[in-house]
Design a protein around this nucleic acid. Structure first.
Length: 221
DNA sequence: GACCAGGCACATC
DNA sequence: GATGTGCATGGT
């Protein structure tokens, strides 16, 4: 990695932290909610996910035992507001099935151990891709793995820190090379990227007032 | 009414 | 292995 990329990544963190302060992420009460939210937020605005999680809470289904006993059809109805609900019901069911079959319903057991083992374990579950796996590991498991989301890609691309077709693992590698492998740091950085992303770095850029606006960038990228 | 939002799996070339 | 497509809701 170019030294200038590392320098820029550190500067972005500084600027965002000074502008926004600690974010206290993930926006969920329990580890179970983190996992459920991570799956439901796939290609979906967070507000829709909250409605779905509220439905699950009201149905007293926000725990692994209840989730295991729900039919996929009933699960789909509860999470309908989060969109692509049949797909997500299948993915949630796949996760819950794996959790019970291999870890007796213990999320702790599933997320502990070597990261080199725990991450591929998650990725082997149908519906759990790299971003969802890393979000679960970092925010529910307190493991030092960086979450690369759409905002992360867009911020880095607009600031010339990666090229158009840099893949997930490449971008994740940039953060792992630039930062100390401390969960709290990865946690805060990802949350800050979402904060700036929601305010300024959506598909149509709104750079006015952005803490990163005085750094080199191209809002068209 | 078009476009977008904190992806992923699968088909096809 | 690169690229395209379905999934589907609610907000702007």
């Amino acid at each position: 990695m170019r030294a200038s990329v590392k320098k820029s990544l550190l500067e972005i963190y500084d600027r965002l932290f000074r502008a926004y302060g600690p974010q206290h992420w993930w926006p969920a009460k329990t580890d179970t909610e983190v996992v459920v939210g991570a799956i439901l937020t796939q290609n979906t605005a967070w507000g829709n996910v909250e409605r779905a999680i509220d439905n699950l809470r009201r149905a007293k289904a926000l725990n692994w035992r209840a989730l295991r006993s729900l039919s996929e059809h009933d699960l789909a109805e509860l999470i309908r507001p989060s969109g692509t609900f049949r797909v997500k019901a299948e993915r949630l069911a796949a996760f819950v099935g794996y959790l019970w079959e291999h870890h007796q319903g213990s999320l702790r057991s599933m997320l502990d151990g070597e990261l080199k083992t725990a991450r591929p374990r998650l990725l082997s579950i149908h519906g759990i891709g790299p971003e969802t796996a890393d979000a679960i590991l970092l925010y529910a498991g307190d493991r030092a793995t960086f979450v690369v989301d759409a905002y992360t890609r867009r911020v880095l691309r607009r600031h010339f820190l990666c090229n158009e077709k840099a893949d997930y693992e490449t971008i994740r590698g940039l953060f792992h090379a630039a930062l100390p492998a401390v969960p709290q740091v990865f946690n805060e950085y990802h949350a800050l990227l979402v904060a700036v992303g929601k305010r300024h770095c959506r598909k149509s850029a709104r750079c006015e007032g952005c803490p990163l606006a005085s750094m080199p960038h191209d809002r068209r990228l």
